[in-house]
Write a protein that binds this DNA or RNA. Structure first.
Lengths: 169, 169
DNA sequence: TTTACTGCAAATATTTTGCAATATC
DNA sequence: GATATTGCAAAATATTTGCAGTAAA
């Protein structure tokens, strides 16, 4: 029996996410390590997107240190377990998010903020959609544009520029 | 007047793509260089996706050498001119494609092949779709799955594995 | 006890940058 | 002639890998 309380806590957890991970590890003959659970534990508390860098820093501030290689290793494991997904939006570094219900990503090309929106109409459309002999597994819809906050700011700075011009006449 | 025939050929071209690029350069006070036209010329001949590496090699085999920095520089210019788009599909390196009509990308998670499909229903759906205060500019739909070629191969290798098992009994 | 996993440092891959030489305007 | 652009090499970033030590089973 394992002497590390953390591992046993997770091993016996009824949390479906933890169980899914345990099942994946078991099914593939992989070990239940403290590091893997520390990472999973942190990820479960994140709502939204995060980078590798951010994830490692969050784990650090949880008072637990894992090496960069282990973060990459575990993140890859979680992707193979279909629990995590990697997104690379235009002009940004890779971001990860837990796999939950399908949703659309709205990406602001001005500030880089990413917002998720659930869209049942679109989900229904995609579920019904067939691509001939291509066997679809999952999809990502990225919508690029300007968020309302940036739209306001840009409008304001445009006005400011106009005022500036007036002054110079 | 410019003495390099290549540049003048392009400068006077009636090709709408070349004209769009020229307009962009003029509007931004950027120069018409041989390198930029060599790259644009190559890109116009590509049907589908390509990486930076592939693009540079293609230009090389056209008998013209441009440095890696210039390829990156020009590709960025073309993206700003809204003539080129960058895609990063799951687990692959960045790929570029000319901006034409909106289309869906089918990405095979087994072989990495990317196929474009036009989808007027989807385009209509997206054109009608509004995201509250988010001002949408363009979108990317990536559908991940298994292409028909890989589906056949995978089926065959599964059979082979089964046959192998039978032999061992 | 066996061997998978971790952490570190080094290697690799990709993209960006500083700067002297060069070409465009 | 003034300066934007190129090409090279070096730097910055992101990710992967080799390997010795450590921990899970």
């Amino acid at each position: 029996m394992n002497t590390d309380p953390h591992i046993d806590d997770f091993a016996e957890s009824n949390n479906p996410v933890v169980r899914k991970f345990n099942d994946y590890l078991d099914a593939h003959g992989l070990r239940r390590t403290t590091e893997r659970y520390a990472i999973l534990n942190r990820i479960m508390g994140i709502n939204g997107h995060f980078t590798i860098e951010e994830l490692q820093q969050m784990i650090d501030s949880d008072g637990f240190h894992v090496s960069r290689s282990t973060v990459y290793n575990t993140v890859e494991l979680l992707m193979n377990a279909k629990m995590l997904r990697r997104h690379v939006f235009e002009g940004m570094q890779a971001q990860y998010e837990c796999i939950t219900l399908p949703h659309t990503h709205l990406i602001c090309t001005n500030c880089g903020k990413v917002k998720e929106v659930r869209d049942t109409n679109f989900a229904a459309f995609m579920n019904a959609r067939r691509f001939n002999a291509f066997n679809a597994d999952h999809y990502s819809l990225y919508v690029y544009g300007i968020c309302s906050t940036c739209a306001r700011k840009l409008k304001r700075s445009k006005h400011a520029a106009k005022d500036e011009k007036k002054k110079n006449i």
